[in-house]
């Protein structure tokens, strides 16, 4: 029997995953800046401090490098820490521990340890927080062997991917787009996981494969609605995991549609789109392509403050509609 399904916000879904994991596993504990009585900068941890106490919902000093390193040390000695970066931009302060320690420890030690930790990474633009609180840096981390990187687009997947991350033996970075926190969607009660490394085809279509993640999935779906009225059918793939990446789902889709577009918020150059393009170029799907691959990524600039500039810096629905229409090349 399937678990009852309710409407929850993305933030509530994450909260629920954390609570389920903490109830089930005494090794799971949370650390981060203002995650206790404040409830987290985005009110994700909410009242967890009252449910589980300040030892397990631990406010840290503003010390991202130290906090990330404490998580690494706890992870290799029998705990399952979740460290919340208040904004994923602040992970730049902790790159040493994330990239040199968490990611490499297992390999450097010849497999003698695992590093089961979760870094929660609120990301993305659209909140008027400007250049140092709005970045989409997930491709940086996805470049590092030893890290796993996931990026849910719905409350359902946010809960399932976080629960999978909490049970994974390796370091997992969960990128949470800030504009999604208030978005509501159906979420089953109780425990379930979404496997790390599996994309989801969220809309079937014949003409163009659109690969997106996080907020861009919703924009791509909206664009698909518009184009459907013109007879252009987009197939929308929600990447969900950046590392490991689900090449097979993308390859099979491109073989069917013969056209590929990637849509992502990170800066276009050397980003996720380059990887998606390359994996198709290297695969048997290359021979199926009927048009050059299109990348729709963030502009080559920091995220600006002015709302019109901010919108201009990342792909919006009309951009996707226009690019996909051009790519479809009149096919209907």
């Amino acid at each position: 029997m399937d678990a009852p399904v309710r409407e929850l916000s993305f933030a509530q879904a994450i909260y629920e995953a954390l609570a389920i994991a903490m109830e089930a596993d005494p090794r799971v504990f949370l650390m981060g800046e203002d995650i206790g009585v404040y409830g987290g900068a985005f009110q994700v941890t909410g009242d967890l401090v009252h449910r589980f106490g300040a030892e397990r919902v631990r406010d840290t000093p503003i010390s991202e490098l130290g906090g990330a390193g404490v998580a690494v040390g706890a992870a290799v000695t029998g705990m399952r820490p979740v460290y919340e970066f208040q904004f994923s931009d602040f992970a730049t302060l902790a790159m040493e521990q994330i990239v040199n320690q968490a990611a490499k420890m297992r390999y450097m030690l010849g497999g003698e340890v695992s590093v089961p930790l979760v870094f929660r990474m609120p990301c993305g633009s659209g909140t008027g927080a400007a250049a140092q609180h709005s970045q989409s840096l997930e491709a940086w981390f996805a470049h590092v062997p030893g890290l796993k990187v996931v990026e849910p687009s719905t409350p359902h997947d946010a809960k399932g991917l976080l629960l999978a991350a909490l049970e994974d033996p390796d370091p997992v970075l969960v990128f949470e787009h800030k504009l999604l926190y208030k978005m509501k969607g159906p979420v089953p009660q109780g425990h379930y996981t979404i496997p790390i490394g599996e994309a989801a085809t969220v809309r079937q279509g014949r003409h163009v494969t659109v690969v997106a993640s996080a907020i861009m999935v919703h924009r791509a779906l909206e664009a698909a609605e518009t184009l459907a009225q013109e007879g252009i059918e987009l197939e929308v793939i929600d990447l969900r995991s950046l590392r490991p990446i689900d090449s097979r789902t993308i390859i099979e889709s491109v073989k069917k549609t013969t056209r590929l577009m990637s849509v992502y918020e990170g800066v276009k150059t050397l980003g996720i789109g380059a990887e998606i393009s390359a994996l198709i170029a290297e695969s048997e799907a290359f021979g199926y392509l009927d048009a050059p691959i299109v990348r729709l990524g963030g502009a080559e600039c920091p995220i600006p403050y002015n709302p019109e500039l901010e919108k201009a810096a990342v792909p919006q629905v009309p951009d996707i509609v226009e690019a996909a229409r051009a790519l479809a090349g009149g096919r209907t």
Binding site: V70, V72, G73, N100
Partner: peptide, 28 residues
Amino acid sequence: VKTGNLGANGIVGGGLPIAVGAALSMKL
């Protein structure tokens, strides 16, 4: 790891927060 040595480290200062994490782990 069996004798409690969590490792040498190529990064100056890299082990400091990790040691704090190990101590937090023991306390928890």
